Amino acid sequence: MNFYSSWFSPGLMWAANLALLLLLLPLAPAAWRSMGRHHAATAAALLILALWWSLRAQIGGGQIGGMSYHLLGLALITLMLGSAAALWLGSLMMLAATALFNGAAHLPVTGLNVWCSVVPPVLVSQLLLYGCRRFLPPNLFVYIFINGFLAAAIGMLLAGLCITGALAWSAAFNNEALWHNALPVFLFIAWGEAFLSGLLCAVFVALAPQLMSTFSDERYLRRQNTIW
């Protein structure tokens, strides 16, 4: 999750940056409206991202030396502020993390890193949220388990596939080492991601529902609701 610009061609990096800009610009009004209406949730989201992304496991040597892993928290942020705001906050956090951990010289790779690490979990979370609203009953268990827990696990796994695929494309590492050594780590991280996201989702719903813009008391806590 810590791409270096030396791993990719300049053309690929700038194409990724341009594509990201074309994605983010139309989403800016919705993102700023959401953050403007939910100041406390925005502050909490920034704190969660800063804390989770600072917990990094760095691979010092071997065939995948130079890689690092960290939690994402983006499925939870999507539930807190919506997908547009989650993409914007995740992209800004990736820009800051790249400058802080890799150095300003590697900022051109930020767009590609966002496509691999930020977009997949936000997309998974948004699709599962839409699917649950469309096809499942408005039940609190469904919201916490599927949108809070399961979405985080699937999003991390998809991000891991995208990251591993991008590194395989770049030929920066041995392909066998990537698929057999680097990718399985995401399976373990996915459980931690899912547990923390599901736990915080449950805590926020119970104690601070104002932090969850996608949660509604009227929808999920009506008396006539049953488990199924």
Rank of each mutant, 00 (worst) to 15 (best):
G65D: 05
Y69G: 02
G103D: 00
A85Q: 06
I64L: 07
I77L: 07
W88E: 01
G90L: 02
F101N: 13
M67Q: 11
S83N: 13
A75H: 14
A104Y: 04
A104E: 02
T78A: 14
I77W: 07
I64M: 08
L87Y: 13
H106P: 03
G82W: 08
A105W: 01
S68H: 13
L74F: 15
S68W: 13
A86L: 08
M80V: 12
A96M: 06
G82A: 04
I77A: 06
M67C: 14
L74K: 09
G66H: 07
L76W: 05
G90E: 07
L76Q: 11
G90Y: 07
Y69T: 03
L107K: 01
L107F: 01
L89H: 04
L92W: 14
A84R: 06
H70T: 01
T78K: 11
M94W: 11
L87N: 14
T98N: 07
I77S: 03
G73F: 03
A84P: 10
L89M: 11
A97G: 11
A105Y: 02
L92R: 05
A97W: 14
A86W: 13
G103E: 00
L100C: 05
G65H: 01
L71P: 00
L89W: 04
W88G: 11
S83T: 12
T78W: 04
W88T: 06
M93T: 13
F101H: 14
L95Y: 15
G65W: 09
L87T: 03
A99S: 14
A96G: 00
T98I: 10
A105I: 10
A99D: 01
L107C: 06
S91K: 08
F101R: 09
L71H: 06
G103V: 00
G73S: 06
L92D: 02
F101Q: 11
L100Q: 13
L76S: 09
A75N: 15
Y69L: 13
L107Y: 02
A75Y: 12
L107I: 02
A85D: 01
L81E: 00
L87H: 12
A75S: 15
T98E: 04
M80F: 13
L72P: 00
I64E: 03
I77K: 07
A75M: 12
G66T: 10
L89C: 08
A75I: 11
L76V: 04
G90R: 10
L79I: 10
M93R: 10
A99Y: 04
T78V: 02
L95I: 08
M67D: 09
N102E: 15
A99Q: 05
A96H: 04
A86S: 11
S68P: 09
T98H: 05
L71D: 00
